[in-house]
């Protein structure tokens, strides 16, 4: 089976000389289609650094990675923009919605950059918002939504292009327990539907929802545990749907 994600010995060094910070010291990670991976680790262990590289937001200092069989390091600026647009859906801890734009327009934005026609765009954006349970909030601006609702809009935006890989960097870090459950429920259902997800988290509760848990320390993978089979259902699905 072809891998969705294949990171080979990636390193990342910030700065030079004595002040250089080795955020990643050779990380290799393979993710199969349909897997649901939680990345855990202490603060400063390099989780976000790894995630930004996978999401094409940053480049590794050395080592390469293939996304859906394509060597991303070899792509030019334009092609990388297309990868970010089509293959990756990124959910941030701080939501990162564009202010003064309605939920609908925020969700339509990746489609607009992808060159989708307005009518089709609207249809898909509404479907995506429906999926996260926000069909009744489409015309609200981010500052008119709760944190949990904003994060669900952000998830709708990440999903709207049907990306190969859904990445989330501490998606529940800024949410209360109810909103956290909402978001985890969405992720579990997406996983059950076969979508590939990589999520960073501090909380063991959140990690328990994944099929596989990867632990980082000081820029290295120290543990890789499988909680459920790749082609099975996520372990806590029944709980969140009940």
């Amino acid at each position: 089976m072809s891998l969705v994600l294949d990171v080979r010995d990636a390193t990342k060094v910030y700065g030079v000389g004595e002040t250089a910070v080795h955020a990643l010291r050779g990380v290799s990670l393979q993710v199969e289609p349909g897997d649901y991976v939680a990345i855990m680790g202490a603060s400063g262990s390099g989780k976000s650094t790894l995630m930004n590289i996978i999401g094409c937001l940053d480049v590794p200092s050395a080592g390469g990675f293939h996304l859906d069989g394509v060597d991303v390091g070899g792509l030019d600026d334009r092609q990388q923009a297309v990868v970010r647009n089509r293959k990756i859906g990124f959910v941030f801890q701080s939501f990162n919605l564009i202010p003064r734009m309605s939920a609908l327009m925020n969700v339509e934005l990746p489609l607009a950059y992808g060159g989708v026609k307005p009518a089709e765009r609207r249809r898909r954006a509404l479907a995506s918002l429906e999926l996260v349970g926000l069909a009744d909030r489409v015309n609200h601006q981010p500052n008119e939504l709760s944190g949990g609702q904003q994060q669900r809009v952000a998830i709708a935006r990440a999903l709207v292009n049907s990306p190969t890989l859904l990445l989330a960097d501490e998606p529940t870090g800024a949410l209360d327990s109810t909103s956290t459950l909402d978001v985890l429920g969405i992720f579990d259902r997406l996983s059950a539907a076969g979508r590939t997800i990589v999520v960073i988290t501090h909380e063991p509760d959140v990690a328990e929802h994944a099929k596989r848990v990867v632990r980082l320390r000081d820029g290295r993978i120290i543990e890789d545990t499988r909680l459920a089979p790749v082609d099975g259902l996520p372990p806590r699905l029944k709980e969140v749907t009940a």
């Binding site: 970010r84 647009n85 990162n96 202010p99 990746p110 950059y113 935006r157």
Partner: peptide, 16 residues
């Protein structure tokens, strides 16, 4: 700038 970052993260090409 943050907004620009968001737009680029969701796939806005430089030209746009």
């Amino acid at each position: 700038t943050r907004e620009i970052g968001i737009r680029k993260a969701i796939g806005a090409p430089r030209g746009a």
